[in-house]
Design a protein around this nucleic acid. Sequence first.
DNA 1: TTGTACGCGTTATCAT
DNA 2: ATGATAACGCGTACAA
Lengths: 350, 350
Amino acid sequence: MPRHKAPSSVKPTRQPTLTDVAALAGVSTSAVSRTFTPGTSVAKSTRALVLSAAKKLGYRPNAIARTLSTRRSHMIGVVVCYLHNQFYPNVIELLSQLLQARGYHILLFVGNDRGPGDNATDALIHDILQYQVDGILLASTTLSSLVAAHCQAAHIPIVLFNRVASVQSATTVESDNFQGGQLAARLLFERGARRIGFIGGVVDSSTSRDREAGFLSGLSALGLPLFATAYGDYDFDTAKAVAIDMFRRPDPPDAVFVANDHMAFAVMDALRGTLGLRVPEDVQVVGFDNVPQSGWGGYELTTIEQDAERMTHAAVEALLNHIEAGASSPAQRIVTPVRVVERSSTRPAV
Amino acid sequence: MPRHKAPSSVKPTRQPTLTDVAALAGVSTSAVSRTFTPGTSVAKSTRALVLSAAKKLGYRPNAIARTLSTRRSHMIGVVVCYLHNQFYPNVIELLSQLLQARGYHILLFVGNDRGPGDNATDALIHDILQYQVDGILLASTTLSSLVAAHCQAAHIPIVLFNRVASVQSATTVESDNFQGGQLAARLLFERGARRIGFIGGVVDSSTSRDREAGFLSGLSALGLPLFATAYGDYDFDTAKAVAIDMFRRPDPPDAVFVANDHMAFAVMDALRGTLGLRVPEDVQVVGFDNVPQSGWGGYELTTIEQDAERMTHAAVEALLNHIEAGASSPAQRIVTPVRVVERSSTRPAV
DNA sequence: TTGTACGCGTTATCAT
DNA sequence: ATGATAACGCGTACAA
């Protein structure tokens, strides 16, 4: 087999570029570019030439170069603070599908730092901005205010997912946490509970605050006081610990509303395992969120369910509209409804 | 306040570039570039000039442009087929930390398509290659062989995580699935089980196959036959269904080894909820994987635990070494040990 | 419809 | 140590 030697120099197998394709097809680079850009006019004959040359070379457009040229990376920065809470993997999975379908991709950042102001947060902001993402989805994280502020300054569209920051003019998608809290209060009351406690999440998170506020509102409408309060930091072990404290008192609650399912599992563990109480016979528990069935274990938990699917759809819609409409799109505030659901994995799901 | 008019034209606030910084600092672009590139020689004085100018303008290096120039994106494509199985979110979280610490970022792809050969898979390959990722981590997915082949062709370093493909010269990180199967067999035997069944995952996945092979090996060493077999496709509902079938027979097994925890939860649901059997009194169940404590619910499952942390560390190490050493690094095959663990969320974890 | 030439923001090369 | 200049691969006026 004869070795063809290229006129200039023998370059080691490198990715074929648009120029290579143009040369092989005997057309200009613009013709090739147009062939791979939908909505442009190319003659059928040249298009065929280009495509065959491209196939022969195994050509693939370089998204990075395109980004530099068009100033659109088609990457969305997704920031979550943890993935323990099974709510988020679920959201991310759907998110990935929706974005992929519209030609966008996920640059993932897990910012699991404790407390704001540490330098991991700064590094994260630094990194995410360097990569020229077209938009950012900020999913419930403690560091959202800081990140949001920086993104605003950089004119990057941002959607706050289940998190309200103090930043003006950022679009927000959240479930009706306040009403969820009210529902929880009414539900526990109707089931006969009278000494009702609350276990919150991260104290200064908007979700925990709103759920608590709604819960208080619901209780006071029923003429009930809040019997006990504690905060589990949205963390499994912390929630377990504070639950044990709360129920070891001489006069413990007969019910508790927990600010998310992740902690609710921990609370039920503490009640049944450590304290030997029966759930729901001795203590009733209501959670909040929407984790997939496989996460419910043997718990049979009553929960306030967020419409994760709707929230995700809304977030994608808002973000991409904002991106593709330039800066002309106004900030929205989208609130999705919640509902009471009783699920268990030992019975068919409702 | 006087309006200064720039000599050329008034550009609407745009991201400051390296050139802008150079102009303001009164130095060349190279000086600026060097200032932001560690390990280069710049005079202290010019460095100071550049930094102050950069700070004044709010300059941030453009990672995309850098990628085009250096041919290193510092992005790692991570492909998973689903996030329901809580094992993967866990891995991704650690992965993110490790990569971030070494200056790399995650471009996430969720390829939850059923069966190979569909065009979603092709689109995924297409996308991931366009973005010039420096390497790919392929986490247990049915489409790995195809993806792996394409990446090999594109000379992109790739690590197969918990998945062995038919591709030569790809580095592999997996736990000792075979030995895990053996352990499961011995464990169930020691606990008195004699009619032992197996519920596998995706039939042609290497993890399921290896676990099954080890299990068979273990059983035959004990002189036991395999009492029943079924496949749950690594899916919650499917596993539930096949478990019900298996245990509704006139002479059901007295124990079952399930190829991962995700399905093991489903199986225990079926046994206790649908069939009214007691676990472990009537039926013993052993799972496989390593899902975080919060996912164990009230199950109190015995499982073969993978060392997820070690696997992730190994994967990152292998991938980055390969990337930074060019193509000179040979393909490795890393196998991490497993161990029997009994965990429950109603008792303190072991 | 097609081709030419320049810009995108950065790094690398080679002088100085 | 510093500066001019050419890549990097692609879009896109603008001209033909």
